[in-house]
Amino acid sequence: MTFAVDVTGLNKSFGDKHVVQDLAVQVGAGKITGFLGPNGSGKTTTLRMLCGLLTPDSGEGEVLGLDFRKAAGQIKLQTGYMTQRFSLYEDLSIEENLTFVARVYGLPDRGRLVTQTLERLGLENRRRQLAGSLSGGWKQRLALAAAIMHSPRLLLLDEPTAGVDPKARREFWDEIHALAAEGMTVMVSTHYMDEAERCHDIAYIAYGRLIARGTGREVIEGSGLITFRAEGPGADRLSRQLAGAPGVAMAAPFGAALHVSGTERAALEAAIAPFRRPPFHWDEVEPTLEDVFIHLMGQSRDNFE
């Protein structure tokens, strides 16, 4: 597999905070790679280092086949970056924002390109509306359109769907997949599990370190997690009794049901044995990505604190 991003030994500190530690990032060309991890785990910092917005303390490797520390200028030309917070000009109209981006990148045939982009967004009737007056979902679509206007080979998205309604999120992901199908490499950070499942690959980082990576299936299998699901009246209330029991890594209610996970089968079964009686109904299920991530988060906290 060829990698659009292949960087190792990435480090970044702010003051005495070591935000990114010896991180290796590999993103397959033409793939959508989900970048997951708890708040403050270094996702944004990593994305910013990859697109030249932050200078790494150390690290080497290639982005789009270019030395990412020396060729930041060339990489910027071929990279689109959508920030976590809306960062287009709120006091410019939609059209003016797009025209500005087109000018900064020196794109040819600007007028037609801007019109095309507006049409694709379905915003041609509101082209003169100020960007600041758009709703969250529209702002996000506009920001994406601006980030891909120069047809970048690599697209970095920093929590692009935070605070956006489910329908807009669905449409957004359809668009991301369409872009990837055209050959664009996408790296997207997110907190949403359903979004993680929509990615080709997943990289999970916590406390600035890479904890797990691979496809969703590989990550689940690699975790070695065994999960039992209890159903029945009041099953969710068992979590308090099971949490912290020997062999139980975590017990989390899912609606009226309960997921109990652990890494050692015997200990886990022993822990739930007292509750394997009516009215509860127990099944072994495949752990969800969320189970795995919460487990990973707990583990890494133990390792680092």
């Binding site: 697109c51 030249g52 917005l53 200028g73 910027k76 030309l77 990279t79 970056y81 920030t83 917070r85 960062s87 287009l88 981006v101 900064v104 990148y105 601006a146």
Partner: peptide, 8 residues
């Protein structure tokens, strides 16, 4: 500024 700096 974040967007601006990400451009060339």
């Amino acid at each position: 500024m974040e967007s601006l700096l990400a451009t060339p």
